[in-house]
Nucleic acid binder design. Structure first.
Lengths: 196, 196
DNA sequence: TTGACAACTTACCAGTCGGTAAGTAGATTG
DNA sequence: CAATCTACTTACCGACTGGTAAGTTGTCAA
């Protein structure tokens, strides 16, 4: 099954939006990546905003399915939360384009009218918050405390994933590889420590 | 002491670069913020890249002085690290423009030739890593482990600071205020749990 | 065979981008 | 008084932006 032109556009757009952001990536550049003109792209997506929206939607769908997988596979709330954070981390290291794009969206979405991407994020966070509240180790947590907690854990993972190129520049590839090798273990430690 | 035109340009640029990113913010828009033309801006800074570089430098200087303050005020390594992470968090909540700009730089700096901002970040991280290694609670930590650990803590703080507008959109101002009210306490808990 | 449709292309548009050139007004200095 | 410097301005420039209009080409159905 060969990818359709449309899908090729989506993946090229994801890559370029992740690298340069919405303003920095031009539709002509995206189209040139496939050896086509920007008018071919406009033919498929109407305009730049719609293309961007579809890229975001595709990412959020992938995220949603990965959540479902974990929820059905693991039962205990504490384990679910731990697996969720770690799956999030692994996914973001594996697909750095989408990790960067989500981070950009976090920074930008106040500006553009977009905000479509907010809703999937809301559902996702809401879900994690209720998971965190289901974990009752040292007394009950308030909703706000739970949100703060899971946001810290997500932040720890996402921030590192997104910083890979910069960290590579600063410390060199070898040392970054070392750090990445023990990051997952340290993250697991952090999640467990936080839940106690 | 009234601010010079140059300083006004720097602060307007910081704000707009933080909001829209390097590509999204035009020098004409920045200048218009002071009621001047873009050529006035170019007169002071030469070109857009240099302006951006100076904004970054100003931020990194503020960061450096805040580090020095803490290092002289607190002595024990564990407390230093804890205070450092919390000061970082408070600073980023108070000055959200610079927090967002740093996050953007983390995403962008591979693209632009810039990388001047990398070095201050390197020194900063290096410092925190040696602090983390000085804390010997549960056996010695490797350099990579220490870097992973402090990056997680910084990430937890920075990610939340940068997400304020988005979280406001998603959950509303009131609930965000609740979450922010307990975030610092939870962050302190996380730092201590991580150091044990 | 014809007609419709999808998937493109070339040609073009107004607007904006960062940047250069050539000034002008005002203060400072010899 | 004249020269110089700083802090700006208006007038441009070529390159690029997202987007429209009007084809062209190939496929598939009636």
């Amino acid at each position: 099954m060969t990818a359709t032109t449309r899908d090729q556009f989506l993946s090229a757009a994801e890559h370029l939006f992740a690298e340069k952001g919405f303003y920095g990536a031009s539709i002509a550049t995206i189209a040139r990546e496939l050896g086509l003109t920007k008018q071919a792209l406009l033919h498929h997506f109407g305009n730049k905003e719609k293309l961007y929206g579809e890229v975001l939607r595709a990412i959020s769908e992938r995220l949603a399915t990965s959540i479902d997988t974990i929820r059905t596979r693991v039962s205990s709330p504490a384990e679910q939360l731990e697996e969720m954070v770690l799956a999030q981390y692994r996914g973001q290291i594996a697909e750095q384009d989408s990790a960067r794009l989500i981070m950009r969206e976090l920074l930008d979405n106040e500006q553009r009218a977009d905000q479509a991407g907010n809703w999937y994020l809301k559902d996702y966070l809401e879900e994690l918050v209720s998971m965190a509240q289901a974990v009752q180790s040292s007394g009950p947590r308030s909703r706000a405390q739970s949100l703060a907690l899971i946001y810290q854990l997500l932040g720890a993972a996402h921030y590192f994933a997104v910083s890979q190129p910069t960290l590579g520049n600063i410390f060199g590839r070898a040392e970054l590889a070392n750090t990445r090798a023990c990051f997952e273990g340290e993250l697991r430690r952090l999640v467990r420590a936080a839940l106690q």
